[in-house]
Amino acid sequence: MKEFRYERPADADAAVALLTDAPGAAYLGGGTNLVDLMKLGVAAPDLLVDVSRLPFEEVTETDGGGLSIGAAVRNSTLASRGIVRERYPIVSEALLSGAPAQLRNAATVGGNLLQRTRCLYFQDVGKPCNKRQPGSGCPAREGVHRDLAILGASEHCVATNPSDLAVALAALDAMVHLVSAAGPRSLPLTELHRLPGDEPHRDTVLRHGELITAVELPPPVPDGRSAYRKARDRASFAFALASVAAVLQVRGGLVHHVRIAFGALAARPWRARVAEEALLGQPATEEAFGQAIDRELAAARPLRDNGYKVPLARRLAVSVLADLAAPEHGGPR
């Protein structure tokens, strides 16, 4: 591991100032991804600014009936909160379906959103990778890419975003609150992560030194039901091959409100806006769900070994939506 200096500032302004003046610096949250990447030589910051104890540790109701989640809240704390389980169960489900308890106890909300791809080439400094070393190439396109992207990838990068939480937040229309030397700003979660294009080394739209302070959820959709479902190679402690978060509100048999987000298919949580638009006002039937998802997944461009993700994502989404439309059949809340 490369040497680094360590600072633990008392407030966000000091943290931002430290990072802004140091191009090689990085924020340290729970460290569950960053420290690992430092051991692998993938990340080599010369200064770590520890933000894990900044006063962003509260989960509070907002005046508008939503929920504000501090960026330093640990994943396990958020997943077990009564108000989260009751009003935003997909947040709890998504968090609990990722990592084991040891990692969830350390990992922060802000860090979860900024974790890097688990693409094998990105994590192996002996291999080329455009995300790790721009211009070095992408062996994944012809190599091992079974886990990698089928949507929104580019010739330069086919990495996927590994977060489960981000998928649930995308379906909930969450906002991300940021602070930088230029002051505070807010973004929809769906605009935080970038598609690779020709700059795959930029995972997000954050500027250097910009710090996530909170995630804000709007009030729950009245009578809306939601679920998160994840397919993976083993039943626990594995990243998704595909996952879906959905929120559905049906009135008089018709889709009145629907949000669908896919995980593990792209470099960012993939909001299925084409499918959402197609479903609005349509009968809440499996047939309609299937047709809408097919329209969304028509944009998929699978590689040699990840074409299975298309039918997998379709089945996940249709089964989740069908369960949500038929609560009397014992589906999830």
Binding site: Y6, R8, L28, G31, V35, D36, L48, Q102, N105, A106
Partner: peptide, 19 residues
């Protein structure tokens, strides 16, 4: 490497001692 940190289980290998 699981230990209890302020009562919560964590992987000690991924935590920096300075923090």
């Amino acid at each position: 490497c699981t230990v209890l940190l302020d009562g919560r289980r964590v992987n000690a290998c991924l935590l920096l001692a300075v923090s």
